[in-house]
Design a protein around this nucleic acid. Sequence first.
DNA 1: GAGTTTGAAACT
DNA 2: CAGTTTCAAACTC
Length: 942
Amino acid sequence: MPNQIPDPTVEQSGDVNDIYEVTSPQTSQEKAITSTREKEQKGVSLITRDLIQIKEELDDFSHQLGNNLEDSKLPGLTILAPLTDHLPNKSVPTGNKTSFELGIVQDCKVSFPLMKDTNQVSADKELVAPFTMVTLATEMNNSTDNVNTNVHFSGETLPVTVVSAAGNSAVNVNTSKQQVVILQKPQPPNHSSLSVSLPTVVASFQPVGQLSKPATLVCSQPSTVCTSTVYVPLTVGKNSEKIVVPHSTVTIPQQTPLVAQTAPKRPCLMPSGQSVTKIMLSKNSLVSNQSGNPVAVAVTNVATGSITSQQHTILLASPGKSYSVTKPITSTGPSVMRGVTGNSNKQGFYLLSPVKSPGTKVTMIPVSLPKSPQKIAPAPACGTTSNFPRVAIATAIAGGSTPTVTTTCTVAKQTTMPATTTKVLWKTVVPATVKSSTSAAGSVPQTIKLVAASGLPQVLMKPGNLPASNLSGPGASPVVCPIQVPGSKFPYVRLVTASTQQTSVSTVVTPRTATVGPVSGIRSMAHSAQVGTSTVQTVGMSSNQLRFAVPIVPAISGHSQVKILSIASKPSSSAQRVLFPATTVTTTSQVHHPASNSTLGISQLTPGTSALLSGSNNMTGLVVLPAQYLTQVQQGQQVSSGALLSTNFLLSSGQGQNILPVPVSANTETPNSHQQAYIPIAAATAPPQGLESVTHQSNPIPAPSRHQVNGVALDCKERRPCNCNKSQCLKLYCDCFANGKFCNSCNCANCYNNLDHEEERQKAIRSCLERNPMAFHPKIGKSKEGDQERRHTKGCNCKRSGCLKNYCECYEAKILCTNLCKCVGCKNFEDSSERKTLMHLADAAEFRVQQQAVAKTKISSQLQDLPIRPPISASGERLPFSFVKQEVIEATCHCLLAQASDGEESQLTYVELEKLVVKEFGRCLMQIIETANQTKDLIPET
DNA sequence: GAGTTTGAAACT
DNA sequence: CAGTTTCAAACTC
């Protein structure tokens, strides 16, 4: 929610901490008001003018009030003085009188006695008035006498009735320190009334009429007088509902924690079409509505200042700012509503103001947190059609082992967000067509628990949960190795069987297919594991030494596959990695598996593909490749061979090819590095909405940065080259780096974002993640589970662009600003006229471009369709048009002009002149044709 | 294309 | 956590 200009009246009081704009679609009238106020804020006092207006309105109101009170059954209410006599800063003490006076203007002290045990106070009195305000006097407990409590109302006045309540309490108010003002909304017939139980005296304000000014209650002495204003709804409460308002706090129901809940910054439209434009919240306040019912708030009319007597509710779906929830009060979920800004030392208000007119409704609807876990490693890859968090898991099943696999994949929980468990059935299917030493042909459903959290998408395969027999050869113990893939933003988990067996290069592969979830088909010579619709394959497994790295593929499911390829290679103890394309590439290169004699297309390899070279006990030979890297390699750039190891692949063409020289990274290849600081770079949010329409293969690299324009990572289309000069492309300033990409065809200087500087790059990645674990997560995600509406995960912070330029990340992503945004002067909300104008312009421009493109295409097509007329026909005839040359044209024009001149001399009419010229033009054409014909006769036939 | 503006990231 | 600086992209001329 963008900040807005504070209410001048409030600002002058200096007590209201935070004023936020809920919505701001303003009518022209409102804009005029706003403009006026802004001007007056600069020097002209608005207060005086407003007060005069208030005074005038209260003149009438006081008479009405007096008349109404005559019939009132409320005891002891007396109007001592005409309201019209009240002026700003005027204190009107009433002494011991059981009456009070209304303060109507800012700094006007309203003094009224709150007497204990007087006739004016009735116990257990239910305040059932349509509109009730309860005020607790400060330090009432300390006084046995009448208490003159000064309550300051700024620009607001309410008819007051002194009442009290005791006994069973529906509202417990701590009056020892603070004064609480509760504004009760009108109650539906079937709802309980507000019962107030107080140790001392309660003064309630019961309005008789409507007020004319924004209900900005300002306490000039917050420490001693009115410290908080809480509008408590009872409109939906049950009889037994208890609203605890200790110290002017409001508690959010457990099931409705507001943390991380955001709503699009759209106006809080009232049924009447009006909208709430401001809401002011104080810090250290809680809203309690344990019933989880909508929280109603009092709404004042910005234009008239009246407080409506109808139910007002406001959507509390976006606590990011206006309803910012800082932390839960209890472990069960109540959260603190606070303002983001403001002086924490001050006590402020929960004050909602204003709406455009009375009778409007604002609904405070507690919104529960998304209960589903955040998706694991959802890269905004293209070509996804599902929201399933996808975890690509592959198992290496050694020959002779049972195909049953039980794997537990746990994502390290980094935040307090509740995590849930996603169970994925894991089946191991042995294709009947493949010879296998394993007799088990059936499928044994296994369970994979994917404990997703909102934090770092670290993925750990618990070794204990991995039966050794299932993963490797006999006696082998599974080892889980978290792996950082350079350039990748998702974590890899390497399931390694620490086998002691030496593997022969010529080990014959016994492929099986391990499938998670429904198996759509059995792939020969491959292990495939499907989670959701994603597939993980281990291709051409060569031995029980097969190790593999499992990328936590983007939480988008799709048809992308991750294949794990085992490559026979020389037994080596050195760390060798063979990188496979993380993206589907168009290459036709294929990998020849010498053992299985199978040829595997590299193009089949998909993001995060990795493989381990067999034949070594060491954790070597892992093959991983960032998604985009192969493309870069294919482009012949950014790949240096120095200090890089390469693995030769046998291609179908018979040529050896150094596919992917990759530096050995210690942090990715260190044996027994279970606890090593691997860098989990993953996206924990769903892919942007727009991705779903893209049909590319998934790309595991999330695109969190600007280049995720419109929710679609530009990688899917194009990625702008960076121009970094000072950051070495190792900071998030660099879009390439921020997107987990290597710089490629960029204009950067002193670039370290390449494999030549992998070590520095890794350090930089770590550094970024230390600062912000979500640094590499997509900035544009979905607001909540199942919600298709995209939003900026952090919100923008624009100050001057109005969020209508590409400086704004929200606007750039073509999404509306939300309550998470801290922008100022935001115009990027749904009903923004400026935004609409821009959208129209953009649409029009786009339409024009499309039209032009279509026209170009059409013209081009037509031109292509046009027969090319040779100047000489097939028969050797020189066609007439070939004679229409410059000199012919000029001669013709001379003839026409001569005719026209003659006609003018003959004083012909215009029509006759026209005919004459046309006739001459026909004659010229005929002459040209005749000449052509004569030429034809002259051309000898060939 | 140079200079300015802007806001996120980085830094203090 | 807030204020300041740095940085590169967006924007303007």
